[in-house]
Amino acid sequence: MTKRVAVILAGCGVYDGAEIYETTLTLLRLDQLGIEYHCFAPDIEQHHVVNHLNQEVVEGETRNVLQESARLARGDISPLAELASENFDAVIVPGGFGVAKSLSDFASAGANMQVLEALKEALTGFRQEAKPIGLMCIAAVLVPRLFEDGIAVTVGNDPAVSGAISSMGGLHRSAGVEEIVVDFEHRVVTTPAYMLATRISEAATGIFKLVDRINEMME
């Protein structure tokens, strides 16, 4: 039977949505391994819109997370509310500031953050069914709020973010850009990606390793 992976997106663009390279590299590696995938995103308004040319917030403009994510998925995407864990063998969440602004409020609340309820409901099913969960870049910060305490994750070596993870009950492990951290007990895999990457090739190495490990864990 063909393996199936759900990929959860948070918009389109590093500063206010899903990180485009991280998403594309994830989908590329899944396809190279012959794994079917389907993308999901919440049908909500973005926290705000950022001009990616100058990184400034665009006042008075709104965009929808699902519609923006559809750009990355070439239109083949469904609302997050329709994601049922029993239909997939694993789930992966790429990074990007949309994770910290729309899927959660980590960008403004830090360790006091709350996670979007629809995301929590979707990922809780994968956790309860012991299906592999992959998160990259800033998405690793979600783990302590989504699941139980003491799950090992990495965002690389950022002291502020790793400190927030620890204060929320998580267990942060420092890692290089091309490395992954695997919590075998809880079946969670993370990699720093663009928390550290300076080139797309650097991000690719860690992301490919993450997808490869998720693949192995689905056996």
Rank of each mutant, 00 (worst) to 15 (best):
M218W: 09
S162A: 14
D105L: 07
C137L: 05
V188N: 14
V5Q: 15
D76T: 08
A81V: 13
S85L: 05
F126K: 10
D16V: 02
E219R: 05
T62E: 11
Q128F: 10
V14R: 04
A164C: 09
V177Y: 13
S85N: 10
I207Y: 14
A84S: 03
T190D: 12
P159L: 06
I44V: 15
G13D: 03
R127T: 09
T190W: 10
G169F: 01
I92H: 04
Y15K: 05
N54Y: 03
V143F: 13
Q32G: 04
A164T: 07
T24S: 10
L103H: 06
L116Y: 00
A203E: 03
R213C: 08
V161I: 14
A140M: 13
A107H: 13
I138H: 15
L103Y: 12
E216L: 15
F40G: 06
L27A: 07
V91T: 03
A122E: 11
A175L: 12
T124S: 15
D76G: 04
A107E: 15
A140L: 11
G34Q: 07
K209E: 12
G98F: 02
G96D: 05
Q32W: 08
Q67E: 12
V5D: 07
V182I: 08
Y194S: 03
A73E: 10
V93C: 06
G134Q: 13
V188S: 14
R173K: 13
V49G: 00
E59M: 09
A100T: 14
P192H: 12
Q67N: 09
K3P: 04
P144D: 10
V155L: 08
L66K: 00
F147L: 07
T124N: 15
L116T: 00
F106G: 00
G17F: 13
G75Q: 07
E68P: 02
T24K: 02
L210H: 08
M136S: 10
P159C: 08
E148N: 11
L123I: 01
F40M: 08
F147Q: 05
Y15W: 11
M195K: 11
P79T: 01
A107G: 02
C12K: 07
E216N: 11
I8G: 12
M136H: 04
N64P: 11
P132C: 12
D149M: 10
L27H: 07
F97K: 09
I44G: 10
